[in-house]
Design a protein around this nucleic acid. Structure first.
Ligand SMILES: [Mn+2]
Ligand SMILES: [Mn+2]
Ligand SMILES: [Mn+2]
Ligand SMILES: [Mn+2]
Lengths: 220, 220
DNA sequence: AAATATTTTTAGACAACTCTAAAAATATTT
DNA sequence: AAATATTTTTAGAGTTGTCTAAAAATATTT
């Protein structure tokens, strides 16, 4: 039996290690999970005993194959529920994360597979992140961050890095959403701000914003 | 903050007391919750301290107004999720209970209200039980149990008492589902079994079955 | 009304997860 | 390479919810 808390730790380790490979250190986990390093150490030991993680004292953790399997499955569920909330229940993309954080722990293979089918097997969630299939396979997106986009080229918004409510609300108020088309007009060397042409307006966004917006090149 | 375990106890007390009024004794709760009487005593004390229940040592519990409010809200969520699973995700009525037992604890008013709207405000769940509205109001069904139905009259199946997987599978295999129309042909005085005319067959069901099937009179 | 049986509560302990404070290991500076 | 700073682990304790065994209260029989 795997507990809800163990699942959350495994997912965090997976995210911090960019695919479960890189070793992750205690403090990083503690910060993301809003807990103390000593609690993390305890849990890492437990995950190690249960064979979800490899751990050597003072050397950080990596996930085992089992651990990665668990992580990908939770991420699959999290992202499917996010699609459900946005497409069927009128949630906006800044409202889904917290609820999905709980729904992702419901254990029923039939539930997940039927939900997947009901949503017509979506491949990306409302934040542009890929949804693993039943076997855990997914292609990582060829995301380009706005800060590194080329002047003169045209892009489509396909995701965000920061999924905080504040950032997503900022995007909404500037008429930027998933799928929004934008042309990069100018990159200011002084403060790295970026001038963009949207469909009905030209706007300037700060470097903080440019670092957090993911795009896919369309032309240029 | 109310915990998942507290919610399950409150719901159990509510169900055992037929609307939260009648006092419920420790052993009854322990049996339903698959736990020991001593654990129940501990929890009852806690619910009492938190003002969800009224409790006098050795005298059983009742729910307070607050406790009833919590219970009805969980039941609302449980039954809405059951409708979702059956109507949208191809679950059969014997598969929904276990999953709904977990989904009922997800805390998000927006989620519940949007789900309610998405399902077009259903008033009964797949087992024929009424779904409380946002304010907690619902009319108890005018259920007639098959064992007390009249010979010669015609009824529609609107629910079951026993929701065990075994019983629901038995009904499925005999082509009895919610909405099935049946005429009572004969009640055998010797063993209280009942002979029924369904659409395409005549069948005899035992007293155990007749006690667990709820009907609504259509004619006769 | 006393004896007996049943129900309920208390006492003490355990598992999961958390915390603070202190010790140990590792990393960085000088 | 020693001193200092940072990170990580251990030790000990608290909370929630559970258990067993024993004591106390209530209910049933005689
Ligand atoms: Mn979670
Ligand atoms: Mn997402
Ligand atoms: Mn439940
Ligand atoms: Mn039901």
């Amino acid at each position: 039996m795997i507990t809800l808390t163990e699942e959350n730790y495994i997912k965090t380790i997976y995210h911090l290690s960019t695919n479960g490979e890189k070793t992750v250190n205690t403090n990083a986990i503690a910060e993301v999970m809003q807990t103390k390093a000593s609690s993390v150490t305890d849990m890492i030991k437990k995950l190690s005993e249960k064979n979800y993680a490899d751990y050597k004292k003072y050397q950080g953790v990596t996930l085992t194959e089992d651990g990665r399997r668990v992580a990908v499955n939770i991420i699959r569920k999290h992202r499917l529920w996010e699609v459900f909330l946005v497409e069927k229940l009128n949630f906006s993309w800044d409202e889904v994360h917290e609820v999905a954080e709980h729904l992702e722990h419901i254990k029923s293979d039939k539930l997940v597979d039927e939900l997947d089918a009901f949503l017509e097997f979506p491949t990306y969630d409302p934040h542009g992140d890929p949804i693993p299939d039943k076997e855990g396979n997914f292609k990582p997106l060829e995301k380009i961050v706005l800060a590194k986009a080329e002047v003169g080229a045209t892009y489509k918004c396909i995701g965000v890095d920061d999924t905080s409510s504040n950032f997503l609300k900022y995007l909404d108020s500037n008429k930027i959403a998933l799928g929004t088309i934008m042309k990069v007009l100018h990159k200011e060397p002084f403060d790295h701000s970026v001038k963009l042409a949207l469909e009905h307006a030209e706007i300037v966004v700060s470097y903080s914003v440019a670092k957090n917006l993911y795009l896919k090149k369309i032309e240029g």
